[in-house]
C-alpha cells in the first residue's frame, strides 16, 4: 500500500511538471515585441494542427487573429521555444544519466569533454568563415570525436574504468580548450573573435525553423534508449561489482548509456553553444522532488529541464533590448540556486 502511495506521489510530480511545462510553453509564445494573447496562441496552434490534418476544409475554423500574429507565433517564436525545451530536456537527461553512470551527483553532461570539443569545432568553423549550418555540424562532430577519443584512451588505461574516463575527459577537455584559446588568438578580432566569444556564451538566437528537426533526430535517437534503460541505470549506480552480480552486463550498458548521453549533449551544444549548469542543477532539483530512482528521476529531469531552459530563454530574449546570452543567465540563476540546495536542510522522514 505504501508503494502505491509513493507511486501516486511520483505520478503527481510528473503530471504537475508536465502541466507547468505546457503552461510555460503557451505563455512563452505570447512574449515578444508583437503582443499576442495566450488564447490567440492556443487558437493559432490549434488552427495549424486543424489545417495540418486536413479537417479545415470539412469544418472551417473562424480566424480571429491577424496574419502578423500568426507569423510571429509560428515562424518566429515556435521554433525557438521548441528548441529551448529540447535543449533543456536533453542536457538534463544527459546530466542525470552521467550522474548515475559515474555514481557521482556532481557529474554533468560535459564531464567527458563534449563541450570543450564542440567549442573547438565551432571556433574552427568560424575561423574558416563557414556558414552557420556548418558551424553546427562542426560543433556536433567536435563533441562526438572528443568523447570517442576520451573513450579510447580510458579503455587502454588499467584500473577502474570510470576513474580513467573522468581523468581522460578532464585532460582532453583542457587540451581542446587550449586549442580554442589559440583559435581565438589567431581569429580576426573585428568579426571572427566576437562570433567565437558569442558562441561560447551559448545562445538560441540563431534558431531557425530547420533547426527543430535537425536537432530533434539525434536527440530522439539518444533519449529513447536512455528512457528504456533507466532501471538498469539504477543498478549500474551501485558500482560495477554489485551490478554485475545482479546480472547486468556492465561494460556494454555503460558504453550504450555514455554513447546516448553524449549524442544528446552534442546535439544540444551544437544548436545552442555551451550552456552550463542545466545538466547539473536540474537532476539535483528533480532528485529532491521525486527521489533517486531513475524510473521517476529521468522523466522528471527532462520535464523540469525543458521548463527551466524555456524560462531562462524567455528572459534572455525579452529582458533587455539586446539578447543576453543564455549561458550567462543559466550560471546567474544556477549558481545561487545550487547554493540554496546545498544549504537547505534535508527533510527527515
Amino acid at each position: 500500500m505504501a508503494a502505491r502511495k509513493r507511486n501516486g506521489r511520483k505520478t503527481a510530480v510528473l503530471l504537475i511538471s508536465a502541466g507547468v511545462l505546457l503552461a510555460l510553453f503557451l505563455v512563452s509564445l505570447t512574449l515578444g515585441r508583437y503582443g499576442v494573447s495566450v488564447f490567440d496562441v492556443a487558437r493559432i496552434l490549434f488552427y495549424r494542427f486543424w489545417r495540418g490534418v486536413g479537417l479545415d476544409s470539412v469544418w472551417p475554423m473562424a480566424v480571429s487573429w491577424t496574419a502578423k500574429a500568426e507569423a510571429a507565433v509560428v515562424n518566429m517564436r515556435l521554433p525557438r521555444v521548441l528548441v529551448a525545451c529540447m535543449v533543456g530536456c536533453s542536457l538534463s537527461a544527459a546530466g542525470a544519466t552521467f550522474q548515475g553512470v559515474f555514481k557521482n551527483p556532481m557529474a554533468s553532461p560535459d564531464i567527458l569533454g563534449a563541450s570543450g570539443g564542440a567549442a573547438f569545432g565551432a571556433a574552427l568553423a568560424i575561423l574558416f568563415g563557414l556558414s552557420s549550418a556548418l558551424i553546427t555540424v562542426f560543433a556536433f562532430v567536435g563533441a562526438l570525436l572528443t568523447v570517442a577519443l576520451v573513450f579510447l584512451i580510458a579503455r587502454r588505461a588499467p584500473g577502474q574504468s570510470t576513474v580513467s574516463l573522468i581523468l581522460a575527459g578532464i585532460m582532453i577537455g583542457s587540451l581542446f580548450s587550449a586549442g580554442t584559446s589559440y583559435l581565438k588568438l589567431v581569429a580576426d578580432p573585428s568579426n571572427q573573435l566576437p562570433a567565437i566569444t558569442y558562441w561560447l556564451m551559448g545562445s538560441l538566437s540563431g534558431t531557425q525553423r530547420s533547426t527543430v528537426p535537425v536537432a530533434a533526430i539525434p536527440m530522439a535517437i539518444g533519449l529513447v534508449p536512455l528512457l528504456l534503460l533507466r532501471w538498469r541505470l539504477n543498478v549500474l549506480s551501485l558500482g560495477d561489482s554489485e551490478a554485475r552480480a545482479l546480472g547486468v552486463n556492465v561494460g556494454a550498458l555503460r558504453t550504450v548509456l555514455i554513447l546516448c548521453a553524449t549524442l544528446v549533449t552534442a546535439a544540444s551544444i551544437a544548436v545552442s553553444g555551451t550552456i552550463g549548469w542545466v545538466g547539473l542543477v536540474i537532476p539535483h532539483l528533480s532528485r529532491k522532488l521525486i527521489g533517486s530512482d531513475q524510473r521517476g528521476l529521468l522523466p522528471c529531469s527532462m520535464l523540469v529541464g525543458a521548463a527551466f531552459l524555456l524560462v531562462v530563454d524567455d528572459v534572455s530574449r525579452n529582458l533587455l533590448a539586446t539578447e543576453i546570452p543564455i549561458g550567462i543567465l543559466t550560471a546567474v540563476v544556477g549558481a545561487p540556486f545550487f547554493i540554496w540546495l546545498l544549504l537547505r536542510k534535508e527533510k527527515t522522514q
Binding site: N234, L246, S292
Partner: peptide, 24 residues
C-alpha cells in the same frame, strides 16, 4: 551508496536478471 534509494527499490534490484534489458 552514491544515491539513497528506498529499501524497497534496493531489494527490487535483485530481480533485474529476470527482465529484458529494456524493461523495468
Amino acid at each position: 551508496a552514491a544515491f539513497p534509494f528506498p529499501v524497497f527499490d534496493t531489494v527490487l534490484m535483485g530481480t533485474t536478471h529476470r527482465l529484458s534489458p529494456l524493461s523495468s
